[in-house]
Design a protein around this nucleic acid. Sequence first.
DNA 1: GCCAACGTTGGC
DNA 2: GCCAACGTTGGC
Length: 155
Amino acid sequence: MNYWLLKTEPDEYSLEHLRSEPSGQARWDGIRNYQARNLLRDAVAAGDQVLIYHSQCRQVGVVGQAEVVRGGYPDPAQFDPDSHYYDAKASADAPRWYCIDIRFVAALPRTVTLAEIKREPQLDDMVLRRQGRLSVQPVTRAQWQHILSMAKRGQ
DNA sequence: GCCAACGTTGGC
DNA sequence: GCCAACGTTGGC
């Protein structure tokens, strides 16, 4: 079982959107970056635990937890000419982009902000610190636990 | 395969 | 809105 951090812009799709899905889950699609794609396709699996991170907003940081319910499968949006995520170079035989399904688990008691994460020596090695733009990132168990404890402790 | 030009992301 | 960092494209 692995841990991941998924980024989203809350104006587009927030933790609250996920929480209010009637099915309790959602397809995490539209990822169009090869490094992130490779992780979705090859590494993310059902049962993995996810931190949801809000970017491009007033309070940037980790806001909640989710769980992977279905590992990587071809993102249907790449085949849909009406979709913003359509990719003419993708085909059913040779899909380019992958997505996963996740379900809401919990909102953190408070947002653990990027500013705090940067100040935390135990989190020096987080991918977030070095590769800020990657939208699917691996997280270690220790980092996972540390972030959850920061959220509980209030700080 | 290199590299310049360009596009996108994302913090501030 | 600005700008730095990074990713992608395409000519050669």
